[in-house]
Amino acid sequence: MTRDNVQLCFGQAALSSRIDRFLVERGLGFNPYALRRARLRDIIVLESQNDRELAAIGLSRDQILPYVFRDLLSD
Rank of each mutant, 00 (worst) to 15 (best):
F22G: 04
L28I: 13
G27R: 12
V6T: 06
A56W: 02
I57C: 06
D75N: 06
D75M: 03
T2Q: 06
P66Q: 05
T2I: 12
A38T: 09
S74R: 15
I44H: 10
F69P: 01
R52S: 11
L54Y: 07
L54V: 08
R39G: 01
D20C: 07
R70Q: 13
T2E: 11
L54I: 11
D51H: 01
S48H: 14
V45G: 04
D75T: 10
R21Q: 10
T2M: 07
L8R: 11
M1F: 09
L15Q: 09
A34Y: 14
E47W: 13
A56H: 04
V68F: 05
N50I: 10
L65I: 08
L46P: 04
G11W: 15
A56E: 03
S48T: 10
L35F: 12
N5T: 13
M1T: 05
A13Y: 07
D75L: 12
R36K: 15
A14Y: 03
C9W: 06
P66G: 01
D51T: 05
A34G: 08
G29D: 11
V6L: 15
R36T: 12
R39F: 03
G58P: 01
F69C: 03
N50F: 14
Y67G: 01
S17N: 07
R36A: 10
P32E: 11
L59V: 08
N5I: 12
L40N: 02
Y33H: 13
D4R: 06
I19F: 08
Q63D: 00
L46Q: 03
R26P: 00
N50Y: 13
A13R: 05
S16C: 08
Q12R: 11
I19H: 01
L59P: 01
R26L: 08
R52Y: 08
I19S: 01
